[in-house]
């Protein structure tokens, strides 16, 4: 309860900043502009905040569970699985439904869950090492990527173009219906991950240590990966694969506030809430004639961060 109160001002601040990013860009004073702001930019900022929160939290959780600072939903194959699911849905016709469910998000979740379950079963084996899990993630990413390329050939040119645009990661196509579809997934995923904070606090000092201190590691790991992939799948289904958010945000938080999940997880969520709408707005103003998809912006920022981390890690391990 106390903890909740302490975070409240920061939650409010983050949401205010996220929504304020809607005003970044060409000024919108006339009536038409007000409409754009209300109907397009604010929903977009809201969606960006939700997607940013989930991707960032999923990154932090996956990093703790797999004991690797480079693990994120995009490196363990969750994103790739969701992408494959979406492309499969496009081949079948994106408007179609299956047992009353819109096929697009259902297929994304099926794909993400399938890949993540394979990863989780690798991770749950008694003697699984972190490297095994990451390598399995890379193998699955490559495999699903190849299948996705094959599927692209099966769709017509118009769909293919929109699929390409979607695959760059963009918040532009979000209407209120998409946002209301996204919301329950975001809430369940975030609440579930926050609920795991106590076992995560033990897991940061090592998987085996945690096991001898009473943590049911397999259960926590399966739950954590499941909740992370649920949220990520919903995000990928609505706005395409947006990479590196789960890498950048948790790392900035770790540098400033430390790695304790009690702090890391909520702070990463809040940073994600601010970060993604901000990147989206940058994409809007950077190039006057055209909008740059937000996935391109996060990739441009994230790739150097990843590079620096890899170099640093190499140096650290060679020192010890």
């Amino acid at each position: 309860m106390m903890a909740l109160l302490r975070w409240l001002p920061w939650v409010v601040l983050a949401i205010v900043i996220a929504l304020a990013t809607a005003w970044i860009g060409p000024s919108l004073d006339d009536e038409h502009g007000q409409w754009i702001l209300r109907e397009l930019r604010l929903p977009r900022a809201l969606a960006g905040a939700m997607v940013g929160a989930v991707l960032s939290a999923a990154g932090a959780v996956v990093q703790i569970l797999l004991r690797n600072p480079l693990a994120t939903p995009s490196t363990i194959g969750t994103t790739a699985g969701a992408t494959l699911g979406v492309l499969a849905a496009l081949v079948l016709g994106s408007g179609s439904t299956w047992m009353g469910l819109p096929i697009l998000p259902a297929a994304a979740f099926a794909g993400a869950l399938l890949v993540t379950l394979v990863i989780a079963s690798v991770a749950a084996r008694d003697r699984a090492r972190t490297e095994d899990v990451l390598l399995a993630g890379i193998a699955l990413t490559l495999a699903t990527g190849a299948m996705a390329s094959g599927l692209r050939l099966g769709i017509d040119q118009v769909t293919s173009l929109s699929a390409l645009r979607w695959s760059l990661g963009s918040l532009t196509i979000l209407g209120p219906d998409r946002i209301s579809m996204l919301t329950p997934f975001v809430v369940i995923s975030l609440a579930g991950m926050l609920w795991l904070i106590r076992p995560l606090e033990v897991l940061v000092s090592g998987i085996e240590r945690a096991r001898t201190r009473g943590v049911e590691v397999t259960r926590v790991r399966t739950l954590g990966l499941g909740l992370a992939s649920l949220g990520v799948a919903a995000c990928v289904a609505t706005c395409g694969p947006i990479a590196f958010v789960g890498l950048i945000c948790p790392h900035l938080v770790k540098r400033v506030l430390g790695s304790a999940p009690r702090i890391l997880l909520p702070a990463s969520i809040l940073l994600g809430v601010v970060f993604l709408p901000l990147c989206d707005s940058i994409g809007r103003v950077l190039w006057e004639q055209r909008e740059i998809p937000v996935g391109v912006i996060t990739a441009a920022l994230g790739a150097p961060v990843l590079f620096i981390l890899v170099v640093r890690r190499g140096r650290m391990s060679s020192r010890s």
Partner: peptide, 9 residues
């Protein structure tokens, strides 16, 4: 093996 080199209090 020693404690991980994480920033933890």
């Amino acid at each position: 093996d020693s404690l991980p080199a994480e920033r933890l209090r």
